[in-house]
Design a binder for these strands. Structure first.
Lengths: 217, 217
DNA sequence: GCTGGATGTTGACAGTGTCAACCGGGGCCG
DNA sequence: CGGCCCCGGTTGACACTGTCAACATCCAGC
């Protein structure tokens, strides 16, 4: 198989791999098509045969990051009841951020190409959010199942805000400039998940009187 | 250049003002010292007499954004009791993000120059965080006042995560790609603050001996 | 065999940050 | 007063970037 196709595809894949390596070493800012080409030993225009522009290359890298992220969330150990499952989702989210800082920062911590121009980029992102919404929907398992209500959307947004906010704060190194002790840093994920659980379990909305459910995360 | 020396002293300020305008129009990526110089009608090297590098100019712009932000939080209407004050702080935070999207995005939504190289940049950021910590410290007004404990740090981090996460999500336009209804968008800030209050109010003291918590992600 | 499209190459152009050299003028000091 | 030097400004260069255009292959399908 002197695969014509295999060869052609290889440069495209090589570009993506090399791009990730460059971003790892030099940050998104350091990514340049010419550097990619140089490292791969091809001419500075070769990558243009596979990506219309630098942003298209970056968008594809990001798209794959989102896809891998969504897959990671999909593959989480499912919790028994909805509350446990939400906790599992939160742990999976933070674990991914911790174990794959590079793709995570790519998704949430760097300036992305305009999503309007790269629609495919956010497909998996939407899927990941849907996971969260479904999980919350099952949690408030009253009549309105199947159709995520506005209340569910709001809670999903809240949970996502808290988890995403923590993950991004932990990553930007903002903490080092804030001078927080390492112990705080270490236990902040579990503490945040605990607080989220409290927020969702404690109160309730006026309608559902089942206040007994305060399973901590 | 026929202009006398009257203006010369203000070139530094002019650069900063013009830089902000450029960032407003073209984003941080569009900021270039040459463009600043061009707009001000000076040579492309003139700004270098006031800023050692492009990043130093950007760092100063960001520093002022943080300073204005901290000032805005300082000037918030103080709440009666600590809980109300926390809510006021949250509202002030989100209001600033909404009313001054440009500086806000500058602080939290764009790649900043390495804080290690620009220490002054984060000074006001630390001050803003201290405000939050103090507020929470007064809230859990048991004996340990004055010395923010680890628990206070953790809660401060949680609150900041949630608020910052929401603000940044609202700004990046990630929501538009998620297809959430506008009504959800509109009420998300107040809902998030509500949930935060619930999380903190639900249980004052979880008897948390969980400082040695090391594997919980 | 010829054609055509995918792939890769070289060459150019405008734009960027930044270093180096030069230069006018005003304050300071001998 | 004369000389000096530094401050703020200038011009000129260099290396780097993305991207357009034209040219060279090679392989598939008619």
């Amino acid at each position: 198989m002197a695969h014509p196709a295999a060869r052609t595809r290889s440069l495209r894949e090589d570009c993506l791999r090399e791009a990730l390596a460059i971003i790892d070493e030099a940050g998104v800012e350091g990514l340049s098509l010419r550097e990619v080409a140089r490292r791969l030993g091809v001419s500075h225009q070769a990558p243009y045969k596979h990506f219309p522009s630098r942003d298209h290359l970056l968008a594809e890298v990001v798209r794959r990051a989102f896809a891998a992220f969504a897959r990671h969330l999909d593959d989480r150990p499912r919790g028994e009841n909805p509350a446990d499952d939400l906790a599992a989702l939160g742990r999976a989210y933070l674990a991914y951020a911790r174990e794959h800082p590079l793709p995570y920062r790519l998704m949430f911590g760097t300036p992305l190409p305009d999503p309007a121009h790269h629609p495919e980029m956010m497909r998996s992102a939407r899927h990941a959010f849907a996971l969260l919404r479904d999980c919350l929907d099952r949690m408030g398992a009253d009549g309105s199942k199947g159709v995520p209500s506005e209340a569910t959307d709001l809670d999903a947004l809240f949970v996502w805000s808290a988890v995403h906010g923590l993950a991004s704060i932990l990553q930007t190194g903002a903490l080092s400039t804030l001078g927080l002790p390492p112990a705080v840093l270490a236990s902040s994920p579990s503490h945040t998940l605990l607080r989220i659980g409290a927020a969702l379990g404690a109160e309730g909305d006026p309608g559902d009187g089942q206040s007994g459910n305060d399973q901590p995360l």
